[in-house]
Design a protein around this nucleic acid. Sequence first.
DNA 1: GCCGTTTTCGGCCCGACTGTTTTCAGTCG
Length: 575
Amino acid sequence: MENAEVARVLSEVADLLELTGGNQFKVRAYRQAAQVVDLLPMPVSELWRKGELTSLPGVGQRIAEHVGELLDTGKFSEHDRLASQVPPGVLELLSVEGVGPKTVAAAWKQLQVKDLDALEQVCRNGKLEKLPRMGAKRVEAIHKAIARYRARKGRSPLHRALPYAQALTARLRQVRGVTEAAAAGSLRRRRETVGDIDLLVAATDAEPVMRELARAPEVAQVLATGPTKCTVRLRIGLQADLRVLPPESFGAALHYFTGSKAHNIAVRSRAVRLGIKLSEYGVFDREGHRLGGASEEEVFRAVGLPWIPPELREGTGEIEAAEHGRLPALIEEKDVLGDLHVHSKASSDGRSEVAELAEEARRLGRRYLAITDHSRSRPLGLDGAKLSEHAAKIRGMDKRLAGKPHLLAGVEVDILPDGSLDLPAEVLSRLDLVVASVHSHFSDAPERMTERIVKALRTKVVHVLGHPSGRQLGVRDPYEFDLDRVLEVAREEGVAIEVNAMPERMDLSDKGCRLAKERDVQLAISSDAHNAQHLGNLSFGVWVARRGWLEKEDVLNALGFTELRRRIGRRRAAI
DNA sequence: GCCGTTTTCGGCCCGACTGTTTTCAGTCG
């Protein structure tokens, strides 16, 4: 059983406890344990085997036993006991933004609301409004949040689906007679959310491949099965479709099932114009003779194009670019030399010491790392004095590390509602790097939000605008503002725009990246890591950047350390 | 339920925001 699934069950126990009026600290304990398991770099089952589960912070005797039971038997008696007290649809209501345990419990116990449909109904018929501390505005907000939740339901964020796709392809590759296995679809294009997992396998005999998929531990149920196709539901709720094809068709199938639909239509109509036929089985001439299809390169070659990276295949100009030899040389993870947005234990939600962050960054091959803790307006954020003290420590450590990696003393300063920064300019100007971000008043009117950000960018002390839209995938929509205007000012002021690589953010978005590039604005791909393990999330930012057509030259932290110092130092000199 | 110790109980982060209320509960981060 995967760590993610153990974490999901633990977190569900927390939700169930909350709904049944359990002790709030017990709730927190389960949440904490779930998070620890989720972030664990090694399989939790391995720790269980060694009897070392309680060595994890937040996992004590009881939770260790529960996890052990879950790993050994696939069941969890404490969870089942609680789940039997709560109707199955009630838990899901907690996923609606602005709806917490109190609201769900009240709607369930007083109005017999047992699922999403029922919640929507009591929004409409006025019954919800009758509950204590409810009013028209709250009901309206919940009603809208239900619609948003429905819209995103069924799609999973990339970071949830990816490990499953990798585990399943690795498993299928082991089956006798299999020559290749890959995940296609929007997952291969690295879209921020995926609807299902498309698995492609090259083999002459389909039957053993399908049998292997059906018995994979990640699979909950086989939904449909035919001679070369099989559809299953995974334990995480996502659907996976398997297609088994002969090796000579694998490239054509990979291209076809990677999509996007718009890209496929464009490539196929090109094939028609050239008098050839393209299908998922291969490339054929008018007489039906096979011209190729074993590899994607053969498919593209047949229509007179170079291979196009999957991230570009959205039908938004990649065919024309390929035709004229103007495909971008997309940035790769190895091109990103440092990380410019990282939190340590010094402020609020950071979980790792600076030394641990530096060590992990070094291990990952980063040449530099900016420690950018929160400013005073955040709970437990740093004021000017504490920040200066923190900066001195970071610089001390930087000396000791002697460039392995270089440390920059920075801050993630709040952009306050009036557009001023949360710390005085003289404090900020003494730091190496300033990331400025919006963390409050997300529902400001668009004009106001735009002016707020513009004002912050004009302060001359900001190097990077952090997570510019504030979105959290499947949780919070981006706040409304005029990105074009912000990009214009960013270019004038020489401020870089962040591509926040937290898997649940991926903000700036792919589209935003492309716009920024067109507007000649530099981007900074940053992990926004809150613990050392998050530093590896940078790849999610690189994928967004690639989908946004970015090249090495467009990215601030693709610069070597000396050049980066020169670039960010120049802003200091200009004050 | 976890953790640390003041060593087997008592504390566990807390402020901002919103919409409700007329002093604060619920949600979020």
